[in-house]
Structure formats: structure tokens, C-alpha cells
Amino acid sequence: MHRRILAGDRLIAAFLIGCVLFNYPVLSLFDRPSEIFGIPLVYAYIFTAWALVIALMAWAVERRFK
């Protein structure tokens, strides 16, 4: 039971982090005409943030508790 609540809380945290990362104003910080590794900054940012949130969710539900 305890474990289930923890996983649920982690998912909510992932949700909140996603809400912040995917929207204004954080999004606007990266909305500049510059490049990183030849890829426009905002493209690179949004895909990285997205992958990060997915990884966080995977970690929240798949991790075995000791």
C-alpha cells in the first residue's frame, strides 16, 4: 500500500514538472534563434524535456522498492 502511494505521488510530481516544462514561461526561455548540435534550440529543448518526463514516469512506476 505504502509503495503504491509513493509511485502515485511520483507520477503527480512528473505531471507537475511536465506542466511547467512544456509551457510558458519556461518554454519561452528556450524560444531563441540559436542552435545546439546543429538543431534549433527550442526543438532540442522540447524533445529533451519530453523524454525526461517520460523517463521520470518510467522510473516512478518500474522501480523496484527495496
Binding site: A7, G8, L11, I12, A14, F15, G18, C19, F22, W50, V53, I54, M57, V61
Partner: peptide, 9 residues
């Protein structure tokens, strides 16, 4: 994606 994070709820 965000909704799936809340899916468990």
C-alpha cells in the same frame, strides 16, 4: 503525456 502521468489517478 501529462494526462498519462495522472492516469494512475
Amino acid at each position: 503525456t501529462l494526462v498519462m502521468a495522472l492516469g494512475w489517478i
